[in-house]
Nucleic acid binder design. Sequence first.
RNA 1: GGCGGAGUAGCUCAGUUGGUUAGAGCAGCGGAAUCAUAAUCCGCGUGUCGUAGGUUCGAGUCCUACCUCCGCUACCA
Length: 509
Amino acid sequence: MQPTFLTTPIYYVNAQPHLGHAYTTIAADVYARHMRQRGEDVFFLTGTDEHGDKNARVAAELGLTPQAFVDRNSANFLRMTDDVRATQDFFIRTTDDGHMTFVQDFLQTLKDNGHVYEGTYEGLYCTGCEAFYKEEELKDGLCPDHGTKPEWLQESNWFFRLSAFQEPLLAHYDANPNFVSPQSRFNEARAFIAGGLEDVSLSRASIDWGVPLPWAPDQTCYVWFDALLNYASALTYARPGEDLTARYWPPRWQLLAKDILKFHAVIWPAMLMGANRALPQRLMIHGYLTVRDTKMSKSLGNVLDPFAVIERYGVDALRYYLLRDVRFGSDGGISYDAVHERYHAELANDLGNLVNRVTAMIEKYRDGIVPSAACDASIAAAIETAREAVATHIHELELTEALDAAWLVVRDLNRFVEDQAPWTLAKDPARAAELDVVLYTLADGTRAAAILLAAVLPDSAPRILTALGAPDDVAWELAAPNLLSAGVAVAPAGPLFPRIEEPLGGDVV
RNA sequence: GGCGGAGUAGCUCAGUUGGUUAGAGCAGCGGAAUCAUAAUCCGCGUGUCGUAGGUUCGAGUCCUACCUCCGCUACCA
């Protein structure tokens, strides 16, 4: 299989990392980890978007230079990737020299190819906001923020001939029905293109904090062009002295939220076409996480704090919850109560307790040594089935469905315990061989389940393997039956997902 | 207005190219068991499949109209 390059958007650093950033990052990380489990050559890219007027303004308000401001805030995002156990291969910053050089080269290429021209951008401009407004955005013809009357301004800009790519884009969409997922987003993007494309300005004359145009240094690159190019620039300098472009380009998957669909599904591919570069294979547009009910919403805008969840339940719980409770690709409601419920019902009760009871029985009935036996055929079949299903779903970024498929094994194993009643077998020495089969099956099946879940539960999966006396290796080919060595000693280590008394958000005063 | 999506059990949702008694998880009720983090397992749902028509031997699954909700309808990022 070809190397896998996947990306998250780069996050705009004017604010703090929040749930949305964590969500996309986690989803991409699950894919990256899965592909690495399969031994694939993976390059997972994420990072921060640091130019633009907004950053410059916030920096000024704080009395910082733009660079000092973005340095500080970018570090917050880098820390976020660690907090959620993301395993990116490179964390790009658009203020990197390598990136800025690439942007200039790319813009020059677009211009050399005849896709850039000088024009005039005009519109209603509010000096207070330092931004252009459309008439319908105004309130009674006044700026909604400042209540002042905006001026009609003209600005000389350089434009990207996006309109010229309407037909090529449509052709690409029609030839690649999987280009954008889910289907509804594909339709949305295609309809937008079919409705006619206007040229877009790719530079700003009034903004200093950005990449200067190589042929007109008095203008800076419009921040979205700058930002989108990160996906390509990173490969040229992520590894000093090495250009990874030939190895990884184009991206297998680019993940993003629906609010930035147009930039990624229209402008970005057009930019690549204009530079004669291959387009990303697929774009995955996930939905919004919305906070439902929660009595604590005294103050509006109360969002679920991913770091609070990590602190109380652990990072695996956050990763599991976000991918499990909301179908990846759809919008969905989340809540602290739901985190609490799923943590206990699924992670603690179904999985954690399974590990606990299996190791406890092996200790009690076999002195902690995994007996020699063959995995029960029905469980073996369930593992094989789940292995295929999980892989298929993850390849399509159907992460919720992948979890469902893996969880069937967990449920089957719990059912197997009840069906076989090892505690009964243990009372009859004549049935020792039967008990061996049951105990081996449980240990082996739980081990396989851990590997199936390892991409989502990077902390817990190795702990499960260790508890079962298996090597700490989550290679995908080990997600198969009969691969636990007989004679190893189990090493129970207490509850994997301890019960949590107080749910988050309950501390309403 | 235009384009697109969605309305299925109390809740969250699955339901391939139309075909036997519409499914899962959660919650609820009842029961079993005791290895285990009082965890697990089993049983229990007469749901007008948004409304009204239509096509068909047969429609949640196709067609028409309508109702409700949502998204998009471009340069803050």
